[in-house]
């Protein structure tokens, strides 16, 4: 199983489309603070919501594309038949493919989570300090994020040129890694570019620690509450990875993408469908059968300092796992009798 998962991940991130999807999503997220003009004190929220939206939409496209490439295309090309000619059961094959698709999505998610954190920190925040009161952006972190992504491409190109390493793999992993590194680095300087760990809102909140001076304290000025919302998006991406993998056992990528997009739409509208709907009505059926994506989309809960509890994230994870199991079972049943030639 591990070999199929590894090969699925390697093959998928080797595809130029995977790297382009990730780069586009990261750059769109990072550029939100540059192009936002209506502040009203909610710049951070705009960046956060945009980042999570990109994470969901581009993640969905990546999951469906990866599933299509690694399942539907492999069936058409014959590499699936070659693997199933070995001692690999069809259930193992489908499950391994899902794990591989989810692995690719998870790497993408890490990069996007980091990019969202960078974007939110770079947006204008209201800062109250001794020397400064007002809105302040963080251009240094933003530049690091942007140059980190572009630098990752340069490193990937160099690895390809000098050591013949795969460009797609290096670029895909490099872009994600660059954003994580920027997040890690951002703990060593404040919003004004001063290499001093205590700064801005945090400094206001714990002025006593500021007085410690000299002691190197690590304090990334990041909104950790985003992580819970991003985890929920990761769960829903796992569900769509399972759905896309199941569909790809019978359908081509375009058809699978259409169905996944429809399920996303119906899932987001699930609350409306379910409202006052009888269990035995069509609306009730739609609300019951399709995964309720609203459970996983809680950006608004982060507004005004709101938090998403760990218990809720765990429960949503269980719900997602149940959906994954159902979709994968359906996929295995669909694939069980399929002729591979």
């Amino acid at each position: 199983m591990g070999a199929i998962v590894y090969t699925t991940v390697t093959e998928a991130i080797q595809q130029p489309i995977a790297f382009l999807i990730q780069l586009t999503a990261v750059l769109m997220t990072l550029l939100v603070p540059v192009f936002q003009f209506h502040r009203f004190g909610e710049d951070g929220r705009l960046a956060r919501d945009s980042g999570l939206s990109c994470m969901l939409i581009f993640g969905l496209a990546l999951a469906v594309g990866t599933a299509g490439h690694s399942v539907a295309d492999e069936i058409a090309r014959g590499t699936a038949a070659a693997a199933l000619g070995k001692p690999v059961s069809r259930v193992t094959f489908v499950f391994s493919k899902w794990l591989g698709v989810f692995g690719v999505v998870a790497v993408f998610w890490c990069g996007m989570l980091a990019a969202t954190l960078v974007s939110e920190r770079s947006s204008a925040h209201f800062v109250t300090q001794e020397q400064f009161v007002g809105y302040a952006t963080d251009p240094l972190t933003l530049c690091l994020g942007l140059f980190g992504a572009l630098g990752a491409l340069g490193v990937a190109a160099a690895r390809h040129y000098f050591w013949r390493r795969r460009f797609g793999v290096s670029a895909f992993l490099g872009v994600a890694l660059s954003q994580v590194l920027v997040v890690a680095l951002s703990g060593f300087y404040n919003r004004f570019g001063e290499f001093f760990p205590m700064h801005s809102e945090a400094a206001c909140a714990c002025g006593g620690e500021h007085a410690m001076g000299g002691a190197l304290l690590y304090h990334p000025e990041l909104n950790g509450r985003v992580v819970a919302a991003a985890l929920l998006v990761l769960w829903v991406l796992a569900v769509f990875a399972a759905l896309a993998t199941a569909l790809a056992t019978r359908l081509q990528t375009g058809a699978a993408l259409s169905i996944c997009a429809s399920v996303l739409f119906l899932g987001l509208a699930g609350d409306s469908f379910a409202m006052n709907a009888s269990v035995f009505s069509l609306r009730g059926l739609v609300a019951g059968v399709f995964p309720d994506v609203q459970h996983f989309w809680l950006c608004d809960a982060l507004a005004h300092g709101g938090r998403i509890g760990g218990g809720y994230v765990a429960e949503a994870g269980l719900y997602a796992l149940t959906c994954c199991a159902l979709f994968l079972t359906a996929g295995c049943l669909a694939f069980r009798e399929r002729d591979l030639g």
Binding site: G85, V88, S89
Partner: peptide
């Protein structure tokens, strides 16, 4: 039977290989 497949070698009509490997 997967146990049986472990004892078989198969060369398909068209060499179906992962192109990037």
């Amino acid at each position: 039977d997967t146990q049986t497949k472990a004892r078989i070698g198969y060369l398909p009509e068209v060499s179906q290989l992962h192109p990037f490997l």
